[in-house]
Amino acid sequence: MLAVIRYTVPGPQTDEFAGQAREILAVFEAQPGFVSGQLSRSVDEEELWALVSEWEGAGFYRRALSAARLVMYPLMTLMINEPSAFEAVYRSERGGASPKLG
């Protein structure tokens, strides 16, 4: 399961935001079901950021959101309000595609 939380971050808040986002990833990393995570910035719109994480399932992600709520709260005003959880239905990797998932 892939989770993508997007943020619009004004230039002057970039350093503070990046530090807080790393804290969120640290909390996520300590949660059961966490597979990987990264903080990414748009190459086309420098104010657009994404906190991307991969989980063993949606339940793990939802419980991790509860565990991280205090760390996530200061960034809520920068968050883009949209669905964030995505179920994998097909995966392609170097060396060949995987069969349909799920």
Rank of each mutant, 00 (worst) to 15 (best):
R91Y: 08
P74R: 04
V27L: 06
A58S: 15
G19M: 01
M79P: 03
E16L: 09
G96M: 10
E56Q: 14
A26R: 08
A58E: 15
E47T: 13
E93D: 10
E56Y: 03
D15K: 12
A67N: 14
L2D: 08
T8S: 13
G11D: 05
E54G: 12
S53W: 11
E47V: 05
L2I: 15
S92E: 08
R63E: 14
L39P: 01
E93N: 10
L39E: 01
S53N: 12
S84W: 03
K100S: 11
D15L: 09
F86N: 09
I80Q: 14
L39I: 09
G19H: 02
V9S: 09
R41Q: 11
K100L: 15
L39A: 02
K100Q: 12
S92M: 11
Q31I: 00
W49Q: 06
E93A: 10
G33R: 02
E54Y: 14
S66C: 02
Y7I: 04
A88F: 12
T8W: 09
G11N: 04
R6E: 14
A64C: 09
V71S: 14
L78C: 11
E45D: 10
S92Y: 11
G95N: 03
G59L: 12
A50P: 02
M1W: 04
G19R: 12
E29C: 01
L48H: 08
R41E: 06
T77M: 12
P12H: 12
E56V: 13
E16N: 06
S40P: 00
S84L: 01
P10F: 11
Q20F: 01
Q20T: 09
M1D: 02
G11S: 04
R91N: 08
M76H: 14
F34P: 00
E93F: 07
F28S: 05
E87R: 13
M72N: 01
T77Y: 10
P10I: 07
G37T: 05
I24V: 13
M1V: 15
V43Q: 04
S42M: 07
G33F: 01
D44E: 06
M79G: 00
E46Y: 02
S36T: 07
L78M: 15
P10Q: 11
E47F: 00
R63D: 15
T14A: 10
P32Y: 02
W49Y: 15
I80L: 12
A26P: 02
F86I: 07
I24N: 04
S66E: 15
I5E: 02
L78R: 14
E45A: 11
R91S: 11
P74N: 05
R63G: 00
Y7A: 08
R62T: 03
D15A: 14
A21Q: 03
Q31D: 03
L51F: 07
L25F: 04
L39T: 03
Y90M: 09
A97W: 13
V71R: 15
Y7R: 08
S40G: 04
I24H: 00
N81S: 11
P32C: 00
T8M: 13
V52R: 10
E56W: 02
A68S: 15
P83F: 07
P10D: 07
E87K: 12
V27R: 06
K100H: 06
V4R: 14
E54T: 14
E47G: 08
M72I: 13
G37K: 02
E82L: 10
V89T: 09
E87N: 09
M76K: 14
S98Y: 13
V71T: 15
R69D: 11
G96D: 06
V27G: 04
L51C: 04
S92A: 13
A30L: 00
A88L: 10
